[in-house]
Simulated scan of single mutants.
Amino acid sequence: MTLYLVDGAHRATEAPDRPVLDIRGLTKVYGQGEATVHALRGVSLSIAAGDYVAIMGSSGSGKSTLMNILGCLDVPSAGTYRLDGVDVSRLDDARLALVRNRRIGFVFQSFNLIPRTSAVANVELPLAYAGVKPAERRRRALAALDMVGLAGRADHEPNQLSGGQQQRVAVARALVTEPALILADEPTGNLDSRSTEEVLAILDQLHAAGRTIVMITHETDVAARARRLVTLFDGRITTDVRQGGAR
């Protein structure tokens, strides 16, 4: 099952078996001469629909650079990147912004919620950018909040919510466009142990429901919840293994 954009809306449609995310020979080079930095050195990775992948690596390993490219926040120096069948490697800024809004659901460490704005309005934002009508935006946002167990907090502003609840609002916002890929960057980095467990339990449920999740983390216990672990070192993938409980 793959999500396609049809008449301005994402709809689940039976499709040929193909990766949701497929990168081949990806390189990223910053600077010139003696200041040249090779952040990625020929990275290749394929992720199937419904997979749950954790990407780990020490500082300078290239994981942040890879995250930015996967999220269409940056472009590679060489190589190809296909997201849900679309080659995004050479798209211009306007088209990259469209892909980010419609095909990727982001969950950030710092939540990135708008202050003094209700939870439901925060969740509606990607739909507003996509031009979805207000009534439909509200319906879909409330449904997404219900999925993360916060239907009763729809009118609460971020400062009225715990850190774990704010991150769950961020997860709802990531889900509301029915993206092909959920990209979570250190999603538990600012949470206590209880809130961490709440957020990871939701990611587990989303994986069980068939969502495709890629999570960047430096925490081994968080990475252990994923079904596949990819490790980067010096701009290259050094390990790519299935973990316990893999489907």
Score class of each variant (00 low, 15 high):
D234P: 08
G210L: 07
A48R: 03
Q109A: 11
I69S: 02
H38P: 02
D204A: 11
D240Y: 06
R247Q: 06
G85W: 02
A121L: 12
S64W: 12
E186G: 15
L45T: 05
I237G: 01
T36Q: 14
I216H: 08
V148S: 01
G71F: 06
L229S: 09
V99A: 11
G31I: 07
R103E: 05
N122H: 06
V169F: 07
L26Q: 04
V107Q: 13
G62L: 11
M147A: 14
I213N: 00
D204Q: 12
L191E: 09
A135K: 14
G79H: 07
G57W: 09
V53K: 00
Q32E: 15
L3M: 11
N190I: 11
L200V: 14
L40D: 04
A49N: 00
I213P: 00
V169T: 12
G25C: 02
L45S: 06
S195A: 15
D51L: 00
T2L: 03
A35C: 11
R236K: 14
H218Q: 10
R242W: 15
L21I: 14
F108P: 08
V169M: 03
E157L: 08
V199R: 12
T27A: 15
A119K: 00
V214A: 05
Y81Q: 05
V148I: 09
G60V: 14
D240R: 05
T220M: 13
L232H: 06
R82E: 07
N112V: 05
L175T: 07
L3W: 11
E197V: 07
T238N: 08
L5P: 01
A144E: 04
A180L: 02
L142I: 06
I47L: 07
L232Q: 09
G33K: 13
V222Y: 15
L96I: 05
A154N: 08
F233L: 13
D22E: 14
P115T: 05
P19R: 02
G79Y: 05
G8D: 13
I213M: 08
A174W: 04
V241C: 12
R225T: 01
R90V: 04
